[in-house]
Design a protein around this nucleic acid. Structure first.
Length: 748
DNA sequence: CTCTCGACTTGCGGTGATTACC
DNA sequence: GGTAATCACCGCAAGTCGAGAG
């Protein structure tokens, strides 16, 4: 992005070129058009509450952690010492323990867990036990890699164990989890030394430089069934046309999307036509998409769908053997074991490639990653073979192939969220965010100081960091112009931010997934001023931060705290907000449902900070109306009840009460009770309606899955006697097994 | 540096499963 | 007992971020 030189004049926008003006234009249309149905969040409203920033400051006292303190101490080993500003700000009250490892910097591990470990975890069952003991023992040499074994996936520990004591026959480690019927047996596992891969694996986030597994056994991946032609003709200018199976397959993909928004988008149609035409050939009767009538295929599709439904669940459930991998002797679930099927590309927002045909993936497209000594999975398509087999134990993927739509990217088959290695890295993510707590104060001081730096780059870094911290914006990496035109912090354009005198900034841009971010906030005046300067002399589509980009920003952040990057602020702000809000709002007493309301409210706050949206359901309006009617009805009934109460007090019989005789001799007290009940009911409905309305565009799930440290939730449940099942679905509980044994007094 | 690549995380919408509602 | 609203899970697009090539 921005070349360093340029600066003031709009003249050079080298980058602009890349960006391609047209896209820019496009984007602005989108804003109003497509996104119109989304209700913009108004973080502003809650200002103080809404934003994490303020709240945090007070945090020092909490430092004294409880038993769990441990984590924090990890040292900041990493960073160049010098760089680390480390201002001694508060405290060092915490015993800076460790010191032991100098190796990995990135280990924000938590040894505490190591000790007591198993407390409650539900599902973990025996696994954990084993581990419990084994783990300490294992200090195996090669573990140097990651921190303490604590964080090491269980599996790894076990294996390490065995290997080091070499008492176990290398050949077949036993599977710890339930054994998979089919597959596990045939998979013979052999332990491998785990030499760092040849190719200099990328991702050397200090720890990944090392092996992530020692043995990896699986059965490869499966492929979607071959296309079964249905023979339905389409009409071209009113005349039936038959298609070859290949032509028909793609035509069907298109026909089936008739009811989607894509169907009528010009770009979608153009891209589809372009690819379909290649299959038809230039001389085909069909010369124009608009003259095609796909109705017969669409109807065939509807029929088939109906038939499927009627024919009572017959889920093939095939491929059980492809759903698991044995990683270091532990059976782990694989995310999705089938490669992506062919289809028409559905990009989000105004994606320039929407509608393109995404071709079928074949075995010769697929690279498998398995242990050195693991048997090579048989190729499920007779007569074909895998593209490549690799044995890279610094990565955790099972299979990969190049994405036909965007050849610059690869697609992967990974282990599932419930796997130990996913869990471990999740934990690491939260520990890093938690560590930011110790640095946030000085980071804020630093950027505040730099708001007025004479050095433009420095000033831009400072302001960008401020926005990322205060508004939880994403970093904003540069994008190609064959992608939807969206931005993040570092790629904000001049017209995405409006200065509103005297000190407000109005943001309006399309972020990830083309979700609109619209928010007006008050900022400190140096920031306001700086933004004004950054905008000065540029045109609307120029970069607001022309001197920096996401990687420069991250380079800077890393000097402030080892391992710190822009995304950590999102995690940090989400988690700290959840923890604080829960502590502030949770009342003693109250039943589980009331507690849950408090939690959901906190969750909502986080979702708003992160701008996690969803489209309003089609029937939302109708549903609200229905509720409203019901409420009115209740209120009407209430009136009648009151009349009857009055009459009862006077000894008169109730008015046209529904059940004439039954209500005859109801006492006034009983009437009062009825009234109270009805009233509560109506009020509750009103509240429900309100929250429904409030949550209309807010998605709670994303923050729960990706941003809020699950230990906060688990600890809160323990403190408040709320069953964890109320808060986490089964999938989530499995994903978060690593967090289940947290102490009730855990603080983020 | 900048650009591309590689791998892993995040995020939305669709859809099947489940529960709520006549 | 059928249907509609809700929930949970899945699929895959789209970010982030480190590193190596040019």
């Amino acid at each position: 992005m921005g070349s360093t030189e340029a600066v003031s004049k709009p003249v050079m926008h080298d980058e602009d070129d890349d960006d391609n003006k047209p896209l820019v234009f496009k984007k602005s249309f989108v804003k109003d058009g497509d996104q119109s149905h989304r209700k913009p969040f108004d973080i502003n409203g809650d200002s103080e509450d809404g934003r994490p920033l303020r709240s945090i400051i007070s945090m020092t006292q909490e430092q004294e952690i409880n038993g769990n303190t441990t984590l924090d101490e990890s040292d900041d080993d990493e960073a160049p010492i010098s760089s680390r500003l480390q201002k001694k700000k508060h405290v060092s009250e915490k015993p800076k323990v460790s010191g032991k490892r100098l190796v990995e910097k990135d280990s924000y591990e938590d040894q505490s867990s190591m000790k007591k470990h198993k407390a409650s975890s539900s599902t973990a069952k025996q696994d954990s036990m084993n581990l419990g003991e084994k783990r300490k023992a294992v200090v195996s040499p090669n573990d140097t890699d990651d921190e303490d074994d604590d964080d090491v996936p269980i599996a790894k520990r076990i294996k390490a164990d065995s290997s080091s004591n070499n008492k176990t026959p290398p050949t077949k480690p036993k599977v710890t989890k339930q054994s998979s019927t089919a597959s596990s047996k045939k998979l013979k596992v052999t332990r491998v030394a785990s030499p760092p891969p040849k190719k200099r694996s990328k991702r050397s986030r200090k720890d990944s430089e090392y092996a992530q597994w020692t043995t990896l056994v699986h059965n490869g991946v499966t492929f979607p069934p071959t296309y079964q032609p249905h023979g339905t003709k389409i009409f071209y200018k009113g005349k039936p046309v038959s298609l070859s199976p290949e032509q028909e397959e793609v035509a069907t993909m298109f026909a089936v999307m008739r009811e989607t928004d894509y169907y009528n988008k010009p770009i979608f149609r153009k891209n589809f036509w372009n690819d379909w035409r290649k299959l038809l050939g230039k001389k085909h009767v069909i010369q124009k998409l608009d003259d095609c009538d796909f109705t017969p295929i669409y109807e065939w599709h509807l029929e088939k769908k109906q038939k499927n439904k009627d024919s009572k669940e017959k889920k093939p459930e095939q491929g059980e053997k492809y759903m698991w991998a044995i990683v270091d002797g532990v059976k782990e679930k694989i995310g999705n074991s089938m490669v992506e099927p062919p289809g028409l590309f559905r990009g989000r927002g105004e994606h320039p490639k929407m509608g393109k045909f995404k071709r079928r993936i074949h075995p010769h497209d697929v690279t498998l990653n398995i242990g050195k000594d693991a048997p090579i999975p048989e190729c499920p398509i007779p007569g074909e073979r895998w593209k490549e087999i690799k044995h890279d134990n610094t990565v955790i993927w099972i299979a990969s192939w190049n994405d036909p739509i965007n050849p610059k990217r690869d697609k992967y088959i990974n282990l599932g969220d419930s796997s130990s290695q996913k869990g471990q890295s999740d934990k690491k993510k939260y520990e890093k965010a938690r560590k930011l707590k110790d640095h946030i104060e000085s980071i804020r001081e630093t950027y505040t100081k730099n708001f007025t730096s004479k050095d433009v780059s420095k000033r831009q870094i400072a302001v960008a960091t401020y926005l990322i911290d205060k508004l939880a914006l994403r970093a904003g990496n540069d994008k190609d112009d064959d992608e939807a035109d969206t931005v993040g912090c570092c790629t904000l354009k001049v017209d995405n931010v409006e200065c509103i005198h005297p000190n407000q900034l109005k943001f309006d841009f399309l972020g990830k997934d083309s979700i609109r971010y619209e928010n007006t906030v008050e900022v400190e005046s140096p920031v306001y001023k700086a933004i004004g300067q950054f905008k000065a002399g540029k045109s609307n589509s120029d970069d607001l931060f022309d001197e920096i980009d996401a990687s420069k920003l991250n380079d800077h952040l890393k000097e402030l705290m080892p391992g710190l990057t822009a995304k950590v602020f999102r995690t940090y702000n989400a988690s700290i907000t959840l923890d604080k809000t829960l502590r502030r709002e949770t009342k003693d007493g109250g039943d589980v449902n009331q507690k849950k309301v408090v939690y959901d409210q906190a969750n909502k706050e986080v979702a708003i900070i992160c701008n996690h949206q969803r489209t309003v359901s089609k029937s939302h309006g109708a549903q609200v109306k229905k509720l409203k009617d019901k409420i009115d009805e209740l209120k009407e009934g209430l009136k009648q009840l009151r009349t009857n109460l009055k009459r009862a007090k006077k000894g008169e019989a109730p008015l046209e009460g529904s059940d004439g005789k039954k209500t005859r001799n109801i006492t006034p007290e009983a009437w009062e009770k009825k009234i109270a009940q009805q009233k509560m009911k109506a009020e509750k409905m009103e509240r429900d309606m309100q929250t429904k309305e409030d949550l209309k565009t807010v998605a709670l799930g994303t923050s729960k899955i990706n941003y809020m440290d699950p230990r906060i939730t688990v600890a809160w449940c323990k403190r408040n006697e709320v069953p964890i099942e109320k808060m986490f679905t089964k999938a989530l509980r499995e994903k978060f097994t690593w967090a289940m044994d947290v102490e009730p007094d855990f603080r983020f």
